[in-house]
Design a protein around this nucleic acid. Structure first.
Length: 271
DNA sequence: CATCAACCCTGAGAGC
DNA sequence: TGCTCTCAGGGTTGAT
């Protein structure tokens, strides 16, 4: 499931020489109507034709393609992926949902097995991403502001970190990994986290995200981009296996309706 | 404000 | 072999 590092990896790919920057869109196909949030299919095809891709960006887990006049936003959700190809493809195209055709004969395919991913073509990207919380790797998020953010709510820390309006980009994997690194139990009320622990947590979040990006993300489920962060997991999907730090068996519980992995010894509950 | 269930989907894995 | 059943997972919506 693509989280910030996986989306960043795909953004890098789209900006690379094999990517899409500079290409002119000559046509589009929407193969699964529900993948397109706005506008209607007819308007989408009409409006996107003729626009050029000027740049590729990322905001939280959203991919942002800056076009001549508008912005194309893509959220990969659980199983979304993007392929750029010239000529015939040897790929399995069964789950292609939206295709952009380019004037040079190449194309970009948004492929999404589970159909949870979404695409928006909008004039103002803030109409879609405006409600997102700060970028965890951004300079505007400081230890002080993060600590203050935690102090203002008493929700459990794990679902809070996964709330994209609180902080943008963390999903199930990197949240579990960051909480382990910081030594914080996933059920800890946010406002019970002391200032020093808040600083540790922000550091841990940045560490796991940067390491994920450095390793081109994690390759699990349907999404494979050559990343190998999955081999670095300390707790995620290691239920019953010994904690690398203390040897205690990693536990799996449900928190906020999500499978959650943690070490009961290294991450004691303070409530 | 916080929590929780349901929903959207597919395919993997278990059970038979 | 092949059927049915359960489940995961991000984010939204609506109920408690």
């Amino acid at each position: 499931m693509p989280e910030l590092p996986e989306v960043e990896t795909i953004a890098k790919y789209l900006r690379s020489e094999h990517g899409v920057v500079g290409k002119a869109i000559s046509g589009a196909q929407v193969l699964w109507p529900r993948s397109l949030m706005v506008p209607s299919i007819n308007e989408f095809v009409d409006e996107i034709r003729g626009q050029k891709i000027n740049a590729v960006d990322r905001r939280g887990k959203f991919l942002k393609l800056n076009l001549s006049r508008q912005t194309l936003l893509i959220h990969l959700r659980m199983s979304g992926d993007i392929f750029v190809e010239s000529g015939k493809t040897t790929r399995e195209t069964k789950h292609d949902r939206v295709i952009l055709d380019f004037s040079d004969g190449s194309r970009m395919a948004f492929n999404d097995t589970r159909k949870f991913g979404r695409v928006w073509l909008v004039d103002d990207p803030l109409a879609v991403t405006g409600g997102l919380g700060p970028e965890p790797l951004g300079e505007f998020l400081t230890v002080d502001s993060f600590s203050a953010m935690l102090g203002s709510v008493k929700r459990q820390i794990k679902p809070l970190l996964m709330d994209q309006t609180f902080i943008a980009g963390l999903g199930n994997i990197y949240t579990d990994e960051a909480l382990f690194l910081a030594g914080i139990h996933p059920c800890t009320p946010a406002n019970r986290i002391e200032t020093q622990k808040a600083a540790d947590l922000l550091t841990a979040i940045r560490e796991v995200l940067q390491e994920g990006i450095r390793r081109n993300g994690a390759s699990i489920d349907w999404v494979y981009r050559g990343g190998d962060f999955q081999n670095q997991f300390q707790v995620y999907q290691r239920t019953g296996q010994p904690c690398y730090r203390c040897g205690t068996a990693v536990e799996r519980i449900t928190v906020g309706q999500r499978g959650t992995h943690f070490c009961p010894h290294c991450q004691p509950l303070i409530s």
